[in-house]
Design a protein around this nucleic acid. Structure first.
Lengths: 340, 340
DNA sequence: TTGTAGGCGTTATCAT
DNA sequence: ATGATAACGCCTACAA
């Protein structure tokens, strides 16, 4: 039996010794290799490889005052938000953008019921170099925490409190909703209802606004709206209400595919054909739209793209490459399927 | 204008000074408060509150040799895996289990195409205190990396390489698949097909095995099986193949709801009614099963529960509270809907 | 180009 | 119960 020597990770000192140079030279060789002779560099490289050395992040952070990690914050007051494919896309986007760096992704999920206070504290604690905030709601206090902490941060989705130092990337929800509604108008529909998203989120608000704008522009009635909560069940309930209050409706714009799917169900069991009797358009195209019967015409939500952009903007700021000030807006393209 | 003093976070030294005690006492008071007089404790507490002190994690890690974070590893060779509600559930479970502690969740997503090598290196680098590995595939090398690093770890889903020191929690896929298939037998079906998951994952393998076992037990034919990839499209393709090869089939057990949904489509456009002509059972019940037409009878996959358990097992090990050795298996309950 | 000498903020050891 | 003091592993002037 041999003694277990490798239980301790190799230190910079050991690398230096193995390479026959001083700690400082080893350090320089490892970080960028500025001001080190080719021989020293080679020797250090070899030692690093042989020993399987990895710098101790804690020690490094202590002196550089950088943690080498960024947070992805997901305030999740409602458990269902997390079940949304939106999260998966966001994660993927952020993850990939971070791949090019050696930053780590720290995921902060809000405890349901706990008003994001813990997260705010963590953010203020200087445990991460920056943060990306996704899907937050009104009253999160997150904005203030970030403002107070002077923490580099980028929001995905327009923040509820509007401060000019709050950078965000979002899809142009108003324009997109308007576009979708216009499509229904173009299809000859005249009694166009909407199932709105939660109005305490900017998405919900903006999509409703777009619907309204398009109808006003077309000179149509803007009465038929019902609130949903981005869930299938919520969409179904809203649809039922719409049907009760406006039996003559001939089109529906739902602020999410999931809600549209719920609406489809209700319409079908009410004996209305889609798109024969009523046209339906959803929002997101994150998987469910292609899977309904009939497949949903919808707006493509470029989540992954947004997440990637948000991350890159954050990285730019972290590396002192300036700071974006204007919001970055993506268009959501119309995807024609069979429900219009 | 006042000078910007709070740009630097308060240090333990400052707290100690403010409280009129030594650094050591302040440290003790902050960590558990063992061996400190009530007065000292109170003074320190007050100072901490007033200064808004948060311990510097890096400095602490340096001496405790603990990072205060655990990794959730998601090797994602295929982008689609991440779009699965499985991930959301896992995340939620791990997140909640971690809430009770002050450990941070570091998310490690494999770069597609890159054979998890980077992750293995990171894990070996001692950057986290432990790891939870979800949805990994054969040939990930992850198992070996973990074994080599002596890193406390728990797998969600039976690892491809079986080593007794590899702890895992999983659903009893064989038993569950068997149960589902038996249900079809009980319904009077006799020509029962299956759409299997990817066979390089233990889930895929085990569910296929359960289907086979049930049929053998019932003395029925075990020929009708087609491989899927856990996606809707994959399920549809597999269903088409089954229909071609076994036109007389009267039931299908799909290894995931998504694939079952694809199968439903194909069956319907082939003119077969469900459950009239053919019964269908899926697996997961993570949202889509309730949303298909007809709603799917399925097996409930207790992902969140599993994730929580996996995390707790890991925490036990981290705190020296012993180490689980046996796999922990959850049953997947049958959820009756309308497709049988 | 290289090495020497602190110091980053904590915890842990050991007297007191 | 308390307080010096020595690490922890790394980076970075500064001097050579």
């Amino acid at each position: 039996m041999s003694i277990d020597r490798q239980s301790t990770a190799p230190t910079l000192d050991e690398v230096a010794q193995a390479a026959g140079v001083s700690r400082s030279t080893a350090s320089r060789a490892i970080n960028g290799g500025d001001r080190v002779s080719p021989e020293a560099q080679a020797a250090v490289d070899a030692a690093v490889a042989r020993l399987g050395y990895t710098p101790n992040r804690a020690a490094r952070s202590l002196v550089t005052r950088r943690t080498g990690s960024v947070a992805l914050v997901i305030p999740e007051p409602d458990g269902r938000v997390l079940a949304d494919p939106f999260l998966a896309g966001t994660l993927r986007g952020v993850g990939h953008a971070l791949d090019a760096t050696d930053l780590q992704l720290v995921l902060l999920i809000a405890r349901p019921g706990e008003h994001a206070g813990r997260i705010a504290r963590y953010l203020k604690g200087g445990h991460v170099d920056g943060a990306i905030i996704a899907s937050h709601h009104q009253g999160d206090e997150l904005e203030n925490a970030i403002l107070a902490a002077h923490l580099p941060a980028v929001f995905i989705g327009r923040p509820a409190v509007e401060a000019e130092s709050l950078v965000y990337v979002d899809v142009d929800n108003v324009a997109a909703a308007r576009r979708a509604t216009q499509r229904l108008v173009d299809a000859g529909r005249t009694r166009i209802a909407t199932i709105a998203g939660p109005l305490d989120m900017s998405v919900g608000h903006d999509r409703l606004e777009g619907w309204r704008a398009a109808l006003v522009h077309a000179g149509l009635d803007v009465k038929a709206s019902a609130d949903g909560d981005f869930t299938l069940t919520g969409g179904a309930i809203a649809m039922q209400r719409l049907l009760d209050d406006h039996p003559d409706l001939d089109a529906v714009f739902a602020a999410s595919d999931l809600m549209a799917q719920g609406a489809l169900r209700v319409l079908q069991s009410a004996g209305r054909t889609v798109p024969g009797d009523v046209s339906v358009i959803g929002f997101d195209d994150l998987g469910v739209a292609a899977a309904t019967t009939p497949p949903l015409t919808t707006l493509r939500n470029p989540v992954e793209q947004m997440a990637r952009t948000a991350t890159n903007v954050l990285l730019d700021e972290l590396e002192g490459r300036g700071r974006a000030t204007r919001p970055i807006l993506y268009p959501a393209e119309l995807v024609e399927r069979a429900s219009v």
